[in-house]
Write a protein that binds this DNA or RNA. Structure first.
Lengths: 233, 233
DNA sequence: TAGATTGTTAATCGATTAACAATC
DNA sequence: TAGATTGTTAATCGATTAACAATC
């Protein structure tokens, strides 16, 4: 499932791809770096930051690999796509490598995020404290139900879905999170994309059809559970 | 990253594997069927059920594939691991195929699930209505904070983490969901495994070390966001 | 320097796709 | 029957690993 495979002129489905490890990267642009590599980088950053907090100043690829549970060769190979970050005989400076990968991923800034759907899940997302330290900030809230419009959550007013495109465009938001129910997900995605959003985190159990320049990643706990039962007894 | 690669006697890390599409299946047992195939099956079931609801009685692999956004060859290949489910010249009976895959995945029963961590996210999970129709039922709630112990959520009393192993064992629960904060996740996982749990859905941003017979799948929205920013502008 | 570990290439492994005979 | 589509094999593609020269 290479990018070129879905580089047609029509919107292409991305649910399975994103959910299952195939390429969820935007098609069209020919990315020389495999999306699977890009998706590993955040874990490297997280692990390096954890090491830094334990005052570990440097690690070898072998140590980092065993901490994460991958092979050392894979880590070195992944990093080699972007440059040279280590010292032979020594390993990697944890702070320098974390910062370097952070820059590659553009985590050296705070990204405003639009969140659509403020049901129980959406509220949990809106209130989640883990986004800010991770370079994301919920900057706009939307919902389809009149019941919630106008409510204030975390200092943000809940706006109607009809305003998604306008607000997202005005505020220059590039990232959207969808936590509406399945039947509304496609419509909401389209409003977001109309406003200029190019990255969507989708919690709705639905296949989003998006243009080739938009990246979609699925959060699909039900499917995850349903695949694990295969291995039970 | 085949199963055999991690079939050593020591617990093996699974975060990256599960999060990123490598094999999150239990090692040891030599599974002839690739985990990547198993992880696609729930999407097939979901899509087939959606078609059934639209009164579509049969589909070709080509139609199903274009609905999901994968190749028809992949669907036929995936199904061929388990048997013959279609009719040449005709396609697949949606009801029959959905039921067949459901049986393969053991979705033809209701699985009790233990949930540890009843913060905002945990409560959203506990109250989520999408599990029951998907063959799962939250059957026990646990939390580490005395503040929540004894509270009733959805008819279930929140019990202390110390009781996880006992209760899980007594009730024969095989599936656990972890939504505690990062520092407590490993400890909670160990209690679950002690009680006999063999499948863990992990929302904590932490690498769980588990024995080879335990399957882990990660739900990691922050990493998903952090990988998408790579493609922005 | 000697030892350790990186960065990189080639070999291996595994998953996807193309193609088509079988057959409904 | 003729047309359509499955089930399956072989070819292709891509990702991971092993190995080692470079070098700190």
């Amino acid at each position: 499932m290479s990018a070129s495979h879905r580089a047609g002129s029509l919107p292409t489905a991305t649910l399975l791809e994103a959910a299952l490890g195939a390429n969820g990267a935007p098609a069209g642009t020919d990315h020389q770096i495999p999306d699977i590599v890009i998706r590993r980088l955040p874990i490297y950053v997280r692990t390096l930051n954890a090491l830094r907090e334990q005052d570990v100043g440097s690690v070898s690829s072998e140590e980092l690999a065993s901490t994460i549970g991958v092979s050392a060769a894979q880590i070195r190979r992944d990093l080699s796509y972007f440059g040279k970050f280590g010292k032979q005989g020594k390993g990697y400076d944890t702070e320098y490598l974390a910062a370097s990968i952070g820059t590659i991923l553009r985590l050296d800034r705070l990204w405003p995020v639009a969140l659509a759907g403020v049901g129980k899940l959406g509220l949990a997302i809106a209130n989640y404290q883990g986004f800010a330290p991770s370079s994301f900030k919920i900057a706009a809230l939307f919902d389809g139900s009149p019941r919630h419009i106008g409510d204030i959550v975390n200092g943000l007013e809940i706006l109607p879905n009809e305003l998604i495109a306008d607000v997202v465009q005005r505020e220059g938001i590039k990232i959207g999170i969808i936590s509406v129910r399945a039947p509304y997900a496609q419509e909401v995605a389209e409003r977001m994309i109309e406003g200029g959003i190019e990255a969507i985190l989708n919690y709705a159990p639905v296949i989003l059809r998006v243009p080739a320049n938009v990246t979609v990643r699925e959060v699909d706990p039900v499917s995850a559970l349903q695949s694990m039962t295969y291995y039970l007894q």
